[in-house]
Design a protein around this nucleic acid. Structure first.
Length: 883
DNA sequence: ATAGGGTTAG
């Protein structure tokens, strides 16, 4: 942007067209207008009342000049003649402007000039430059001329005619030797930023610098803002350096304003950056000034949610001997609260208490909010009572948080009691207080109490706002009072508070959650303007109420897209219900049709859902669809599918998918290898894992140890165990279980204690099982008792192990006893327990008993589990291998 | 002078 300086104004002085013209004006009577204009006593409205005037140009000027004591009259007189055959002359405008300006009516001047500029050259019959010249010709006062230029710059800025505004600004400077008011320039720069013309801002600024014109702190703030929007880091640096080296008349005031401006415009970080050098070069030497700056910056950083930076600045501030005031503490606490770092917020509060910093009710309400945000409503109330004990003056905000907490705890009566206490203390409640109480009442189904409060508030002369109506209508709906909810909508409308889609949605959601589906549908149908938000609300509410079919049908038939979050909610619900997974997939198709890009995590979710129900075929089909859309599933999705293939013993497919993922540059992790190695004892992945830099973890080690144990290669298993500990991978209870399963003579109890590994049911079961296998039933039972003693609750497995042991020893009576004991202790025998006992009976010749038991099992609907089946499968394959 | 509370949606 190049600004061409010009001194046109002085050149054209004297060239002004003047003199009489043949134009005639008809001026209608002023009294016919509604505008009350005259503030003056001398010129009465009635002056022109008797008839229309016919005036020539000179006459107009004469009239206008006679109105120099009444700018409003002059303005309206001009307006009158504007509407007529001939346009007012440039002199007429110049005269009026002089009058208005002379009276110091800057705002009037501003609006007048905006209108004038808007007309355009053709609309008014002269150019703005001609107007300026005309004023310059009549007027000797520099101040007045500057004032007109200033207003003109603002007018152009208002109309986003930036080139013209710049032109006037610099022309004024060059011809009058003084620039328009800095405020007009700032206004202009501000508008330029708002319209994204940041380049222009920078251009104008450097021209101002070049000419040595004064800019104020606000100007610099605007320029920094523009430079930041341009991503011009160098420019910012250049500007800041230039600022720090400049001679400013009152540097302290300037920099405090500058810092203030930066903070007000979300540039607190830069303000902080500036603070250090300013301190070092002793510009902000005064402790109080430095304190003002620091406190402002910390608050600014908090406002921008840069809480870490704020804390840094806070410490820095304390190091320089500046005490934070209550506002700084408040900002930091709020910063932590809003970023959900509640412990940190409470921590700051405790520090304040420890330092005996005075605590006021604002801090208290922040802290109470913190408790509530953590869901600790009773804690909030306790704290409130403590503060009350300490005689900290508490206000209606504080009380509000406290009785809101009571309401959320379901204690509405107490909440209302607290509210009465507050009003009793002379604290006048506001609409928010009532809203909180009404919300609390509705939450407890006390709708009539809610009505009473509404009436009470009405009586106190406070007018209900949209929120309180929303809460009431939604609350009524949620309690199934459809009729009353709708009446509330009517009532609010009658009282001039228009229900919004939020109101409607609260009613919709309330009704649906209350199970009033027909009423909700009817209400939806009754809406004159159904907004997208209403549809979204219907779908979401059906999801919330668990009506997935309704939610799905409604969502899928819409011809326009809903917000992504709606699809996400519905999709997630559908995925988690095993009979709705294919609908989840339909929903994705619909999203694609409507041009809504699904969240990437949704693909993985769907595949995961299919895998969870072992429908790996469907998972794979969808997987292939993704691939055609060039969507590559992530590591987790691949691993889930591989795991499912493994679980279903489709090892070839699992391995193929594993190769596929590597081909697509999806790097496997330790879980992927674990999954593969777990079900594929032939695989050796050691080298590959090293190549991918995947380090085995405790799970993988355990699997490998288990593998050697199963092959009865105790030496290798133990070597691996040692290797794992050497790598500082701490074994867990599974590792020990696996080791002990085949090598019960190992005594690892002490080591387990040292690693703080607690035995679990599996561990004990293995030990019991072993003892049974070697025929020491007594020891097995001893271990069982030990397990109970150590507080581990047995499940069916240890009982079954004992049953198996008894059967093996031919002690069927005891086996049956243990079986019954298990049922007595509240456990349900599973497929394995039954088959163990049945096999025992049969093997020992009690065929009839075996048969009865089998019948019982089938009657109870006990079926083999996946785990038991794969155990069978595994046993079979192992038997084959050994053969 | 500067700060904190009620509905939704996120």
């Amino acid at each position: 942007m190049r600004v061409i300086p010009s001194s046109l104004l002085s050149h054209v002085r004297g060239l002004i067209r003047r003199g009489p013209s043949s134009r005639w004006y008809v001026v209608p009577a002023l009294s016919r207008t509604n505008i009350t204009i005259s503030h003056s006593e001398q010129v009465k409205e009635g002056t022109f009342d008797y008839k229309s005037l016919e005036l020539n140009e000179i006459g107009v000027l004469r009239v206008l000049n006679s109105m120099k004591d009444d700018p409003y009259l002059a303005l309206s007189f001009l307006k009158r003649i504007e509407g007529n055959v001939a346009l007012p002359s440039v002199q007429a405008y110049a005269t009026v402007i002089r009058i208005v300006c002379g009276w110091g009516l800057d705002q009037k001047l501003d609006t007048f000039l905006v209108e004038l500029v808007r007309k355009g050259d053709a609309g008014r019959g002269f150019s703005v430059m001609e107007l300026l010249n005309a004023i310059g010709e009549m007027e000797q006062s520099l101040v007045l001329l500057i004032r007109v230029s200033t207003a003109l710059v603002k007018a152009y800025a208002n109309l986003e005619m930036f080139e013209e505004a710049i032109d006037i600004f610099f022309r004024t400077y060059h011809s009058l030797g003084r620039a328009p008011d800095i405020k007009a320039l700032n206004f202009l720069l501000n508008r330029m930023i708002a319209s994204g013309r940041t380049d222009m801002v920078v251009g104008v600024f450097w021209e101002i610098e070049r000419l040595g014109l004064d800019a104020d702190a606000h100007t610099y703030v605007l320029v920094v803002q523009a430079l930041c929007r341009n991503d011009d880091k160098e420019g910012v640096d250049k500007l800041l350096i230039r600022l720090l080296n400049s001679e400013t008349r009152n540097p302290c005031v300037f920099y405090l304003n500058f810092i203030e401006g930066l903070c007000l415009n979300q540039m607190a970080s830069m303000a902080y950056l500036l603070l250090q050098p300013l301190r070092e070069v002793n510009i902000l030497v005064d402790k109080s000034d430095l304190g003002i700056a620091y406190r402002r910056v910390v608050r600014g950083l908090c406002n921008e949610m840069r809480i870490e930076d704020a804390e840094k600045a806070f410490l820095d501030m304390e190091e320089h001997g500046i005490d934070p005031d209550v506002y700084v503490y408040s900002a930091i606490i709020e910063g932590h609260r809003k970023t959900m770092n509640i412990p940190k917020a409470l921590d700051i509060f405790n520090k304040m208490v420890k330092k005996r910093t005075r605590i006021n009710c604002v801090i208290v309400s922040s802290i109470l909010q913190c408790c509530c945000q953590m869901g600790n409503f009773s804690g909030a109330y306790v704290l409130f009572k403590e503060c009350r004990e300490l005689n900290i003056p508490l206000d209606r905000v504080c009380y509000n948080v406290a009785f809101d907490a009571l309401g959320k705890l379901g204690k509405v009566e107490e909440a209302i009691e607290l509210f009465r206490e507050m009003t009793g203390k002379g604290i006048a409640p506001d609409v928010i207080n009532y809203t909180t109480l009404i919300g609390g009442c509705c939450l407890q189904g006390k709708c009539s109490d809610a009505f009473d409060l509404m009436i009470e508030m009405d009586g106190s002369g406070k007018s209900p706002d949209i929120v309180i109506y929303n809460v009431l209508a939604g609350g009524l709906a949620r309690n199934g009072l459809a009729q009353e909810a709708l009446e509330t909508l009517k009532l609010m409308e009658d009282r001039g508070v228009k229900p919004t889609y939020v109101t409607q949605n609260m009613v919709i959601e309330g009704l649906i959650v209350a199970g009033k589906l027909d009423e909700a549908e009817a209400f939806y149908e009754s809406l004159e303007h159904k907004s997208r938000e209403n549809d979204a609300s219907m779908v979401k509410s059906y999801c919330e109420a668990g009506c997935l079919d309704q939610a799905f049908e409604r969502c899928i038939r819409l011809e326009f897209p809903l917000p992504k979050s709606v699809y996400f909610t519905l999709f997630t619900s559908l995925c988690s219900e095993k009979d709705h997974i294919s609908k989840a997939q339909d929903l994705l198709d619909r999203m694609w049709e409507l041009g809504v890009k699904p969240e990437k995590s949704m693909y993985g979710k769907l595949i995961g859902a299919w895998c969870r129900v072992n429908n790996v075929r469907k998972a794979r089909q969808f997987f292939e669809i993704l691939v055609t859309k060039e969507i590559i599933p992530d590591l987790f999705t691949y691993t889930i599918m591989i795991n499912t293939y493994c679980r279903l013993n489709e090892l070839k497919q699992a391995y193929a998918l594993f190769q596929d993922m590597k081909r697509r540059d999806v790097k496997p992790d330790v879980v992927t290898y674990t999954v593969l190695l777990n079900s594929n004892p032939e695989l050796d992945m050691k080298r590959e894992m090293e190549a991918f830099d995947v380090k085995p973890d405790v799970v993988l080690y355990t699997i490998m140890i288990n593998r050697y144990c199963k092959l009865n290669d105790v030496k290798k298993a133990y070597a691996l165990f040692k290797d794992m500990k050497r790598r500082e991978i701490v074994p867990d209870v599974v590792t020990y279980t696996v080791l002990l399963k085949n090598n019960p003579e190992l005594d690892l109890t002490r080591e387990m204690k040292a690693f703080d590994v607690k035995p679990d049911v599996f561990y004990y079961t293995v030990l019991i099982d072993w003892q049974c296998k070697i025929g020491d039933l007594k020891e097995a039972k001893g271990i069982f008792d030990q397990m109970i003693e150590s507080g581990v609750d047995p499940d069916a497995a240890p009982y079954t192990a004992l049953i198996a042991g008894c059967c093996k020893m031919g002690n069927l009576k005891e086996a049956k006893m243990i079986f019954d004991l298990m049922i007595e202790s509240g456990l349900k025998p599973d497929f394995v327990s039954y088959t163990t006992l049945i096999a025992g009976f049969r093997r020992n010749g009690f065929v009839r008993k075996a048969f009865t038991l089998m019948k019982e099992m089938l009657e109870k609907g006990i079926k083999p589990t996946q785990a038991s089946l794969s155990a069978v499968h595994y046993a079979k394959s192992k038997a084959k291998g050994l053969r």
